[in-house]
Design a protein around this nucleic acid. Sequence first.
DNA 1: CGGACAACCTGGCGGC
DNA 2: TGCCGCCAGGTTGTCC
Length: 277
Amino acid sequence: MPELPEVETVVRGLRPDLIGKTITSFWYDWLPAIRTPSPEQFEARVVGQRVEAIERRAKYVVIVLEDTLLMVHLKMSGRLYVTPADAQHDADRWVHVRFGLSTGEELRFSDARKFGRVYLTNAVEQVTGPLGPEPLEDAFSLAVFQSRLAGRSRLLKALLLDQTFIAGVGNIYADEALYRSRLHPLRRSDTLTDEEVALLYDCVRSALRDGIRHEGATLSWYRKPDGSKGSSQEHFDAYGRTDLPCHRCGTPISKIRVAQRGTHFCPTCQRLPSDTG
DNA sequence: CGGACAACCTGGCGGC
DNA sequence: TGCCGCCAGGTTGTCC
Protein backbone atom coordinates (compact mmCIF):
# COMPACT_ATOMS: atom_id res chain seq x y z
CA MET A 1 0.00 0.00 0.00
CA PRO A 2 1.88 2.83 1.37
CA GLU A 3 4.44 4.84 -0.45
CA LEU A 4 6.30 7.88 0.81
CA PRO A 5 3.21 10.14 1.15
CA GLU A 6 1.19 7.49 2.95
CA VAL A 7 4.02 6.57 5.33
CA GLU A 8 4.72 10.25 6.00
CA THR A 9 1.04 10.74 6.84
CA VAL A 10 1.12 7.76 9.21
CA VAL A 11 4.21 9.17 10.93
CA ARG A 12 2.66 12.61 11.34
CA GLY A 13 -0.55 11.12 12.70
CA LEU A 14 1.22 8.86 15.18
CA ARG A 15 3.36 11.58 16.75
CA PRO A 16 0.67 13.19 18.93
CA ASP A 17 -0.71 9.77 19.85
CA LEU A 18 2.54 8.14 20.83
CA ILE A 19 5.39 10.47 21.72
CA GLY A 20 6.16 10.52 25.43
CA LYS A 21 4.35 7.26 26.18
CA THR A 22 6.12 4.17 27.48
CA ILE A 23 5.79 0.65 26.10
CA THR A 24 4.71 -1.74 28.84
CA SER A 25 4.06 -4.98 26.98
CA PHE A 26 4.63 -6.81 23.70
CA TRP A 27 2.35 -9.35 21.99
CA TYR A 28 2.30 -11.01 18.59
CA ASP A 29 0.50 -13.85 16.84
CA TRP A 30 2.42 -14.07 13.55
CA LEU A 31 6.05 -14.94 13.98
CA PRO A 32 7.26 -13.93 10.50
CA ALA A 33 6.15 -10.34 11.25
CA ILE A 34 8.84 -10.17 13.95
CA ARG A 35 11.74 -9.84 11.59
CA THR A 36 14.53 -9.11 14.05
CA PRO A 37 15.52 -9.80 16.78
CA SER A 38 13.86 -12.92 18.22
CA PRO A 39 10.50 -12.33 19.94
CA GLU A 40 12.15 -12.91 23.33
CA GLN A 41 14.83 -10.33 22.61
CA PHE A 42 12.23 -8.03 21.11
CA GLU A 43 10.14 -8.04 24.26
CA ALA A 44 13.13 -7.62 26.54
CA ARG A 45 14.47 -4.66 24.60
CA VAL A 46 11.19 -2.83 23.98
CA VAL A 47 9.35 -3.05 27.29
CA GLY A 48 10.02 -0.05 29.53
CA GLN A 49 11.15 2.13 26.63
CA ARG A 50 9.65 5.58 26.15
CA VAL A 51 8.86 6.91 22.68
CA GLU A 52 11.05 9.93 22.01
CA ALA A 53 10.35 10.67 18.35
CA ILE A 54 8.82 9.22 15.20
CA GLU A 55 10.46 9.58 11.82
CA ARG A 56 10.34 8.16 8.31
CA ARG A 57 13.07 6.74 6.11
CA ALA A 58 11.97 5.66 2.63
CA LYS A 59 8.79 3.66 3.31
CA TYR A 60 9.81 2.67 6.83
CA VAL A 61 8.30 4.11 10.00
CA VAL A 62 11.09 4.72 12.51
CA ILE A 63 9.96 4.98 16.14
CA VAL A 64 12.83 6.34 18.22
CA LEU A 65 12.89 4.77 21.68
CA GLU A 66 15.29 5.62 24.48
CA ASP A 67 17.75 2.83 23.73
CA THR A 68 16.73 1.43 20.36
CA LEU A 69 14.82 2.06 17.14
CA LEU A 70 11.51 0.33 16.49
CA MET A 71 11.05 0.13 12.73
CA VAL A 72 7.97 -0.94 10.80
CA HIS A 73 7.47 -1.60 7.11
CA LEU A 74 3.79 -1.64 6.16
CA LYS A 75 4.35 -3.29 2.76
CA MET A 76 1.03 -3.63 0.94
CA SER A 77 -1.68 -3.74 3.59
CA GLY A 78 -0.10 -2.82 6.91
CA ARG A 79 -1.62 -0.31 9.33
CA LEU A 80 -0.19 1.29 12.46
CA TYR A 81 -2.32 3.09 15.02
CA VAL A 82 -2.90 3.78 18.71
CA THR A 83 -6.17 2.69 20.27
CA PRO A 84 -7.63 2.02 23.72
CA ALA A 85 -6.52 -1.45 24.80
CA ASP A 86 -10.08 -2.46 25.59
CA ALA A 87 -10.93 -2.16 21.91
CA GLN A 88 -9.53 -5.65 21.46
CA HIS A 89 -12.57 -7.26 19.99
CA ASP A 90 -13.54 -4.74 17.36
CA ALA A 91 -13.66 -5.17 13.61
CA ASP A 92 -9.92 -5.30 12.96
CA ARG A 93 -9.27 -9.02 12.45
CA TRP A 94 -5.76 -8.47 11.18
CA VAL A 95 -3.84 -7.23 14.23
CA HIS A 96 -0.59 -9.23 14.49
CA VAL A 97 1.51 -7.14 16.87
CA ARG A 98 0.48 -5.08 19.89
CA PHE A 99 2.58 -2.81 22.09
CA GLY A 100 0.85 -2.02 25.37
CA LEU A 101 1.32 1.59 26.49
CA SER A 102 1.57 3.24 29.90
CA THR A 103 -1.69 5.09 29.19
CA GLY A 104 -3.74 1.92 28.91
CA GLU A 105 -3.79 2.25 25.14
CA GLU A 106 -1.92 0.07 22.67
CA LEU A 107 0.06 0.60 19.51
CA ARG A 108 -1.21 -1.88 16.95
CA PHE A 109 0.29 -3.30 13.83
CA SER A 110 -2.43 -4.74 11.63
CA ASP A 111 -1.79 -6.40 8.28
CA ALA A 112 -4.27 -8.38 6.20
CA ARG A 113 -1.69 -9.65 3.72
CA LYS A 114 0.97 -10.46 6.30
CA PHE A 115 3.78 -8.91 4.26
CA GLY A 116 4.60 -6.19 6.78
CA ARG A 117 7.47 -6.52 9.26
CA VAL A 118 8.67 -5.00 12.53
CA TYR A 119 12.31 -4.61 13.53
CA LEU A 120 14.42 -3.44 16.44
CA THR A 121 17.80 -2.02 15.56
CA ASN A 122 20.37 0.52 16.58
CA ALA A 123 21.02 1.61 13.00
CA VAL A 124 18.38 2.27 10.35
CA GLU A 125 20.65 1.14 7.49
CA GLN A 126 21.04 -2.25 9.12
CA VAL A 127 17.36 -2.85 8.41
CA THR A 128 16.92 -0.99 5.15
CA GLY A 129 20.14 -1.84 3.40
CA PRO A 130 21.44 0.72 0.92
CA LEU A 131 18.85 3.36 0.05
CA GLY A 132 18.79 6.29 -2.32
CA PRO A 133 18.29 9.86 -1.09
CA GLU A 134 15.07 11.21 0.38
CA PRO A 135 13.49 13.01 -2.59
CA LEU A 136 11.92 15.80 -0.54
CA GLU A 137 14.97 16.73 1.49
CA ASP A 138 16.98 19.81 0.57
CA ALA A 139 20.07 17.66 0.10
CA PHE A 140 18.38 16.01 -2.86
CA SER A 141 19.26 18.68 -5.39
CA LEU A 142 18.95 18.54 -9.15
CA ALA A 143 22.72 18.07 -9.25
CA VAL A 144 22.41 14.99 -7.05
CA PHE A 145 19.68 13.60 -9.29
CA GLN A 146 21.80 14.22 -12.39
CA SER A 147 24.84 12.55 -10.90
CA ARG A 148 22.84 9.50 -9.85
CA LEU A 149 21.58 9.12 -13.40
CA ALA A 150 25.03 9.25 -14.92
CA GLY A 151 26.33 6.16 -16.63
CA ARG A 152 23.18 4.08 -16.36
CA SER A 153 20.48 3.07 -18.74
CA ARG A 154 17.22 2.03 -17.16
CA LEU A 155 13.55 2.15 -17.99
CA LEU A 156 12.24 5.26 -16.24
CA LYS A 157 9.48 3.36 -14.48
CA ALA A 158 11.92 0.78 -13.12
CA LEU A 159 14.34 3.50 -12.09
CA LEU A 160 11.76 5.42 -10.07
CA LEU A 161 10.68 2.23 -8.31
CA ASP A 162 14.28 1.38 -7.38
CA GLN A 163 14.66 2.25 -3.69
CA THR A 164 18.43 2.38 -4.01
CA PHE A 165 18.04 5.11 -6.63
CA ILE A 166 15.45 7.28 -4.86
CA ALA A 167 13.82 6.29 -1.58
CA GLY A 168 10.06 6.21 -1.18
CA VAL A 169 8.57 6.25 -4.68
CA GLY A 170 6.19 3.36 -5.38
CA ASN A 171 3.91 2.34 -8.20
CA ILE A 172 1.33 5.10 -7.78
CA TYR A 173 3.64 8.08 -7.54
CA ALA A 174 5.97 6.72 -10.21
CA ASP A 175 3.07 6.78 -12.66
CA GLU A 176 1.91 10.19 -11.44
CA ALA A 177 5.40 11.69 -11.69
CA LEU A 178 5.90 10.35 -15.21
CA TYR A 179 2.50 11.67 -16.28
CA ARG A 180 3.38 15.12 -14.98
CA SER A 181 6.70 15.06 -16.78
CA ARG A 182 5.12 13.80 -20.04
CA LEU A 183 7.80 11.13 -20.17
CA HIS A 184 6.95 7.59 -21.31
CA PRO A 185 7.47 4.90 -18.65
CA LEU A 186 9.47 2.80 -21.14
CA ARG A 187 11.82 5.66 -21.93
CA ARG A 188 15.48 4.87 -21.23
CA SER A 189 17.08 7.06 -18.58
CA ASP A 190 20.17 7.76 -20.70
CA THR A 191 18.10 9.26 -23.55
CA LEU A 192 16.80 12.22 -21.54
CA THR A 193 17.82 15.75 -22.44
CA ASP A 194 19.02 18.03 -19.66
CA GLU A 195 15.65 19.74 -19.73
CA GLU A 196 13.82 16.43 -19.36
CA VAL A 197 16.01 15.41 -16.42
CA ALA A 198 15.21 18.69 -14.67
CA LEU A 199 11.52 18.24 -15.44
CA LEU A 200 11.46 14.71 -14.08
CA TYR A 201 13.25 15.85 -10.95
CA ASP A 202 10.59 18.52 -10.34
CA CYS A 203 7.70 16.18 -11.16
CA VAL A 204 8.83 13.42 -8.79
CA ARG A 205 9.01 15.94 -5.98
CA SER A 206 5.73 17.67 -6.76
CA ALA A 207 3.85 14.37 -7.11
CA LEU A 208 5.10 13.26 -3.69
CA ARG A 209 4.45 16.64 -2.08
CA ASP A 210 0.89 16.69 -3.40
CA GLY A 211 0.40 13.13 -2.13
CA ILE A 212 1.38 14.28 1.36
CA ARG A 213 -0.82 17.36 1.06
CA HIS A 214 -3.79 15.06 0.38
CA GLU A 215 -2.75 12.82 3.27
CA GLY A 216 -2.01 9.79 1.13
CA ALA A 217 -4.07 7.62 -1.17
CA THR A 218 -6.68 5.23 0.19
CA LEU A 219 -7.24 2.55 -2.45
CA SER A 220 -8.28 -0.31 -0.20
CA TRP A 221 -6.24 -0.90 2.93
CA TYR A 222 -4.48 2.34 3.73
CA ARG A 223 -5.85 4.47 6.54
CA LYS A 224 -4.45 7.37 8.47
CA PRO A 225 -3.68 6.48 12.09
CA ASP A 226 -7.01 8.02 13.14
CA GLY A 227 -8.80 5.57 10.84
CA SER A 228 -9.88 8.08 8.23
CA LYS A 229 -9.03 7.89 4.52
CA GLY A 230 -6.56 9.96 2.57
CA SER A 231 -7.78 11.83 -0.48
CA SER A 232 -4.75 11.63 -2.77
CA GLN A 233 -6.53 9.07 -4.98
CA GLU A 234 -9.09 11.73 -5.88
CA HIS A 235 -6.35 13.72 -7.59
CA PHE A 236 -4.64 11.05 -9.70
CA ASP A 237 -4.03 11.80 -13.36
CA ALA A 238 -2.71 8.39 -14.38
CA TYR A 239 -2.73 5.70 -11.70
CA GLY A 240 -5.90 3.60 -11.80
CA ARG A 241 -7.43 5.69 -14.60
CA THR A 242 -7.27 3.05 -17.34
CA ASP A 243 -9.54 4.00 -20.28
CA LEU A 244 -10.57 7.26 -18.60
CA PRO A 245 -9.83 10.49 -20.48
CA CYS A 246 -6.46 12.15 -19.96
CA HIS A 247 -6.91 15.32 -17.92
CA ARG A 248 -4.77 17.20 -20.46
CA CYS A 249 -5.86 15.92 -23.86
CA GLY A 250 -8.80 13.57 -23.42
CA THR A 251 -7.04 10.49 -24.84
CA PRO A 252 -7.96 7.34 -22.90
CA ILE A 253 -5.26 6.42 -20.38
CA SER A 254 -3.38 3.24 -21.32
CA LYS A 255 -2.34 0.47 -18.98
CA ILE A 256 0.69 -1.67 -19.75
CA ARG A 257 3.10 -3.84 -17.83
CA VAL A 258 6.50 -2.32 -17.01
CA ALA A 259 8.94 -3.78 -14.51
CA GLN A 260 6.23 -6.31 -13.64
CA ARG A 261 3.97 -3.54 -12.43
CA GLY A 262 0.72 -2.16 -13.80
CA THR A 263 1.70 1.11 -15.45
CA HIS A 264 -0.70 3.88 -16.45
CA PHE A 265 0.13 6.66 -18.88
CA CYS A 266 -1.31 8.90 -21.59
CA PRO A 267 -0.25 7.55 -25.00
CA THR A 268 -0.64 11.03 -26.51
CA CYS A 269 1.10 13.18 -23.91
CA GLN A 270 3.78 10.65 -23.01
CA ARG A 271 5.39 9.64 -26.29
CA LEU A 272 8.52 7.64 -26.89
CA PRO A 273 10.90 9.41 -29.29
CA SER A 274 10.38 6.53 -31.73
CA ASP A 275 6.62 7.07 -31.72
CA THR A 276 5.54 8.82 -34.88
CA GLY A 277 2.06 9.22 -33.58
C1' DC B 1 24.50 -4.03 -14.93
C1' DG B 2 19.56 -4.59 -16.29
C1' DG B 3 15.51 -7.07 -16.38
C1' DA B 4 12.17 -11.04 -15.91
C1' DC B 5 10.01 -13.83 -12.68
C1' DA B 6 8.65 -16.25 -8.55
C1' DA B 7 7.69 -15.99 -3.82
C1' DC B 8 5.76 -14.16 0.32
C1' DC B 9 -0.02 -13.80 1.79
C1' DT B 10 -4.92 -12.55 1.79
C1' DG B 11 -8.89 -10.06 0.23
C1' DG B 12 -11.74 -7.96 -3.24
C1' DC B 13 -13.71 -7.85 -7.57
C1' DG B 14 -15.33 -9.09 -12.24
C1' DG B 15 -16.96 -12.77 -15.02
C1' DC B 16 -19.58 -16.80 -15.77
C1' DT C 1 -25.53 -16.94 -5.01
C1' DG C 2 -21.21 -19.47 -5.71
C1' DC C 3 -16.90 -20.53 -7.60
C1' DC C 4 -12.72 -19.17 -10.09
C1' DG C 5 -9.25 -16.60 -11.88
C1' DC C 6 -7.02 -12.40 -11.65
C1' DC C 7 -5.37 -8.28 -9.55
C1' DA C 8 -3.22 -5.52 -5.82
C1' DG C 9 0.26 0.15 -2.85
C1' DG C 10 6.40 -3.78 -1.79
C1' DT C 11 10.65 -6.23 -1.38
C1' DT C 12 13.95 -9.98 -2.03
C1' DG C 13 16.34 -13.62 -4.17
C1' DT C 14 17.34 -16.33 -8.35
C1' DC C 15 18.33 -16.77 -12.99
C1' DC C 16 19.64 -15.28 -17.69
